[in-house]
Simulated scan of single mutants.
Amino acid sequence: MLLELHPQNPHPRNLKTVIECLKDGGIVIYPTDTVYGMGCDIFSGSAVERICRIKGIDPKKAHFSFICYDLSHLTDYTKSVDTPLFRILKKALPGPYTFILPASRQVPKMLKAKRNTVGIRVPDNLVCRTIVKELGNPIMSTSLPIEEYVEEYTDPEIIHQKFGHLVDIVIDAGAGGLTLSTVIDCTGDEPELVREGAGSFEALV
């Protein structure tokens, strides 16, 4: 199903359709402040496994991140954040960054990396943050099952033609981007750039 959600004012009925789908263990393709991503409720193990099958990856080796609504929501899923790190997070979020942080007990085992870490995003995108807020849980965040994002994958209609059969809902909230988020590992003494993307690492450190 291709479902339209206005980027600034998503219709409550359409939003409800997405929430019900996620609660039922469904998979959606949704907008972020970077590229269109694919995800599910982080507490739906069967949906996480289904995404792994779609992407052809082993759930035990997968490095998935997920989307929180805001900074206070993020701190539920990470171990205590010290003041310098909190300043960086506050400066960066909402924004096009993924932060690798020590995972708290609330993070489902399937989504923790071997090092007991988790990647967390708070995108500057009203639609996906509203979905998280209404759902009451974070949603998993992973890229589409493609080698790289090219121009056609900014168009929700083309995304629906190509991947609509693999997922339950493709959300159309206008054109997406082409650049992935910047990934920063904050589990060591100093923040470390893992992947350069849409966000500036230099602006934060």
Rank of each mutant, 00 (worst) to 15 (best):
L85R: 15
S44M: 10
V81Q: 00
M140V: 15
G136T: 08
A62L: 00
P84F: 07
V35K: 02
H165M: 13
S44L: 00
R129E: 05
V107F: 12
K133A: 08
L89K: 02
R121I: 14
P10I: 03
D82Q: 11
E192N: 12
G188C: 04
V170Y: 02
G136I: 02
I171W: 09
D58Y: 04
P84M: 04
I19F: 09
G176S: 08
P138I: 13
T130W: 00
F86L: 15
Q161E: 11
G176K: 13
G95Q: 11
V81E: 00
Y153W: 09
V122Y: 01
L180Y: 06
S72R: 02
E4S: 05
P96R: 09
L178S: 10
V18F: 04
H6F: 03
L5S: 04
A175F: 01
Y97H: 03
V18W: 00
Q106L: 13
Q8I: 02
V48Q: 09
G176I: 11
P10M: 03
T75D: 07
F163H: 08
R53W: 11
E151F: 05
D70Q: 04
T187H: 08
D24E: 06
A113I: 01
L71R: 05
P7Y: 05
T117I: 05
D24G: 06
Y30K: 06
G164C: 15
I171A: 12
C40T: 14
C68W: 11
T17P: 01
S200E: 13
P84E: 09
T98C: 07
L5M: 03
Q8Y: 05
V122N: 11
H63R: 02
T154Y: 01
N125A: 07
I88C: 12
K60D: 14
L3G: 07
V132R: 07
D172W: 02
K162Q: 15
D76W: 01
V127W: 07
T117E: 13
K55E: 05
Y153I: 06
G177E: 07
F86W: 06
G176P: 03
F86Y: 06
L101K: 08
I67Y: 08
F99M: 09
V132Y: 10
D33C: 09
E157V: 08
I139T: 15
G174L: 00
S104L: 14
T83P: 00
Y153A: 07
R50T: 08
D155G: 00
D58C: 04
V48G: 06
D172L: 01
L74W: 10
K55N: 13
E157Q: 11
I100S: 01
F86I: 08
T78D: 05
H73R: 10
G164V: 13
P7N: 09
